[in-house]
Design a protein around this nucleic acid. Structure first.
Lengths: 213, 213
DNA sequence: GCCCGTCTACCCACTTATGGGTAGGCCTCG
DNA sequence: CGAGGCCTACCCATAAGTGGGTAGACGGGC
C-alpha cells in the first residue's frame, strides 16, 4: 500500500519557504514533491488530482487558514496525512491543528532533516511534532496528569470505554443525553483528542479504565 | 450511584422458575425483586416504572422472544443490565444475546448462588456467563485465536483503533466506504462484539494494534 | 466443476455522533 | 460578593455509524 516514494504536497504562502523546502526535499530519493501551492484552495485542487500521501501546510495563510484547510482536506482526502508548518508555537494553534486532524506540527526553525523525518513518520502512520512543539504538548500533559479530569468526566470516560452511547450514559447517570454529550465534548477538548477511539486509548493508557470488564 | 440494594426484575414464562427464583432471591438482603412478569411486554412496562438495575430474562418466550426484548429494553432503558436465562447452551443464542446487548447468560441448571453472583457481577458493571456458557465462549475464542481474522480485517481493525471513519479507511485502502463498512460489520459479527469501543479493546488486547501510535 | 472463503459493493431505514454554540444553577475560594 | 470551575441542559446542521440484507468476482482446494 505504501508506494516506493512518499508523495508530498507543499502549501505555504511564503515563496522562500516553499521553494526552499521543495529544493531540499527533492534531494531525497524517497520523497517526491508532487506539487506546491501558495494558497490552500490551490493546494486542495492539486491534492484532488494527485492524492499526496503527505501534505505539509502552513498554518498562516490568507483567505483560507491552514486550520480550516485541514477540514477541507480531511473531508475530501481523508487519507492524506497533514503536517502543519508554523512559525508560532502557540498552544492554541497546536491543539487546534490536532483537533482538526493534523498528524504533525513542526516549527519552521527546524532542520530539514527533521522535516524529512516528519514526512517519513507520518507517511508510515505515525505522528510527528518538532521539539519545541513536543515541549508544549508535554507541559500540557504534565498539567493534565496533575488534575486532568473532573470526577464526573472520569466516570463518563469509563462508560465510553465500555462502548456506551450518550443515551446509555445518560440513563446510567440519571442525566439527559445532551449532558452526556457535553461531557464527551469537554473530554475531547480537554485532552486534545479528536475521536472516541482516541479517548478509549487515553483511558486505557492512564488507568482510568481497564480492558478487563 | 449504586443503591444499597440491587433491584432486579424477573421475566420468565415458566411460573415455576419465576416464583422459585423470586423466593430464593428474596432471601438475600442485598437483592430486591422489584417485579416479575411472564411476558416480555409486561416486563418492559414494569421496567419503565421501576427502572431495575438488573433484568433476568428468559430467552424463550411466546410472542416476544427474549432476544427481541433485549432490543426494546436497551432502547428504552439502556441502563438496566440484562442477563439472559436459558435452558439451551446454543452458541447462536448466546452470541446473539451478547450481540444485542445482554451482559450475562446463565443456564437454568445453575445453582442459585450462581444466579446471585451473576446479579452482583453485572450490577457492578461486569459480565457473567455460567460455566457451561463460558465453555462455549471459550471454544469460540480458541477457534478465533487460531485464525480469527483475515489479513484485510486485521488491517482495517488497526485503522479503526486509530479512530479512522469508514470513509477514511476507504480512502486509505482504495476501496469504497461501503466496503469498509462491510468489513467493520464482519469484524463485529466474527468477534461477537457489539460496539466499536469493544473492537478497540479487542485489538489492544490481542496485539493487533498498539496504543502507541 | 463446484463449493467456500475473501474481498468487494450496494440497498434501506434508522439512530447516533460531531462540532459549533449558549446558558443557568451551585459551590468554593479569595 | 465576585470569579471561576463544575455540572447541568439545550440549540443547530451535518456527518457517521448501525443492522438488516444481497450479490458479484476471484482463487484455491476437493
Amino acid at each position: 500500500m505504501t508506494r516506493d516514494r512518499i508523495s508530498v504536497l507543499l502549501i505555504d504562502n511564503h515563496p522562500v519557504v516553499l521553494d526552499g523546502l521543495k529544493a531540499v526535499l527533492e534531494t531525497f530519493d524517497h520523497i517526491e514533491v508532487i506539487g506546491t501551492a501558495s494558497l490552500a484552495q490551490v493546494g486542495l485542487e492539486i491534492a484532488r488530482q494527485r492524492r499526496p500521501q503527505v501534505t505539509l501546510m502552513d498554518i498562516n495563510m490568507p483567505k483560507l487558514s491552514g486550520i480550516d484547510a485541514i477540514e477541507l482536506f480531511r473531508r475530501e482526502l481523508p487519507a492524506t496525512r497533514i503536517v502543519m508548518l508554523s512559525m508560532h508555537d502557540s498552544r492554541e494553534y497546536i491543539s487546534s491543528s490536532i483537533m482538526h486532524g493534523a498528524v504533525g506540527y513542526i516549527l519552521k526553525d527546524v532542520s530539514t532533516d527533521e522535516v524529512v523525518c516528519a514526512i517519513e513518520t507520518v507517511a508510515s502512520g505515525g505522528t510527528y511534532f518538532s521539539s519545541g512543539v513536543r515541549d508544549i504538548l508535554m507541559a500540557d500533559e504534565a498539567r493534565m496528569e496533575a488534575d486532568p479530569l473532573t470526577p464526573r468526566e472520569r466516570h463518563i470516560l469509563g462508560l465510553i470505554v465500555t462502548g456506551r452511547s450518550n443515551r446509555e450514559i445518560a440513563e446510567e447517570l440519571g442525566i439527559t443525553p445532551a449532558t452526556a454529550e457535553t461531557h464527551r465534548k469537554n473530554l475531547k477538548r480537554k485532552l486534545g483528542i479528536a475521536t472516541t477511539a482516541g479517548l478509549i486509548r487515553y483511558a486505557l493508557d492512564h488507568g482510568i479504565a481497564t480492558r478487563a470488564v
